[in-house]
Amino acid sequence: MEQKKLNPELVKLVEEWKGKEGNLIMILHEIQNHHGYVPRELSLELSKMLEVPLARIYEVITFYNFFKLSPPGKHLIKLCMGTACYLRGAGIILDEIKNILGVKEGESTKDNLFHLDVVRCLGCCGLAPVLMIDEKVYSKVKKAEVADILSKYIKEE
């Protein structure tokens, strides 16, 4: 298996944050920004560099919803389950996505093309129900539109 090394940029970043108190979460954010998740090898290396036990790092990673321990699929689907979206039928949209892709929330498809996440409020409740794929926001989504939206990404492959 390919060994993931801290790239020089991240080493620099860790050095930069090392002296600051409460740096762990910020460093994890940077790692996840870079890799899409927090690989175990990097946590191990980070533990040595910061001189904190691996358990301390894992306790933080697993507490916060934002951090991931496994690589996400190529396209990240974030389905909003905030109250406004829920009231306007986000549950139906979720079922439809699950149906089409054959995955549960928090899982990636077998071909690793999609990862489905249910999130609590994307902060644009006026457009409910909202679906976000990577950086693109789909607003006022209807059940019938879901297949069309997803097929765009499948065709690209």
Binding site: M81, G82, T83, A84, Y86, R120, C121, G123, C124, C125
Partner: peptide, 11 residues
């Protein structure tokens, strides 16, 4: 840290 689902004043 505006986490209340359905609120986005702070944002």
């Amino acid at each position: 840290d505006e986490g209340d689902p359905g609120a986005y004043m702070d944002r």
